[in-house]
Amino acid sequence: MLEWTLAILILLGAFFTLVGSIGLFKLPDFYMRLHGPTKASTLGVGAILVASAIHFSLKTDGVSLHEILVTLFLFITAPVSAHLMAKAAIHIKVKQVDRTRQLEK
C-alpha cells in the first residue's frame, strides 16, 4: 500500500518535471517559457522530495524531515528567480510573440 503511494508520488513528480521542461522547450517566446519551469518543475521536485522523506522515514528509525527544507527552499526561491529573470528580460527588451497583448492600467 505504502509502496504504491511512493510510486505514485515519484511518477507524478517526474511527470511534472517533464512538463516543465517541455514547456521550456516548445513555447514560442521567453515570457511564456518562464511559466513552465517556475510552476511545474517546482511542484515536480517537491513531490519527489516528499516521496524521499516518506521512504527514508520508513527505512530508518525515526523521521527524516530534512527533505522538507529543500522543498521549502525551492518554493521560496523559484518565484524570486522568475521575477528577476523576467525583469532582466524586460530590461534588455527580449522579443515577445506577436499576439502578446499589452493591457494598460
Binding site: Q96, V97, R101, Q102, L103
Partner: peptide, 8 residues
C-alpha cells in the same frame, strides 16, 4: 490557442 499578455 494561447493568448499571452501583460497586465497591470
Amino acid at each position: 490557442k494561447l493568448n499571452p499578455g501583460f497586465l497591470h
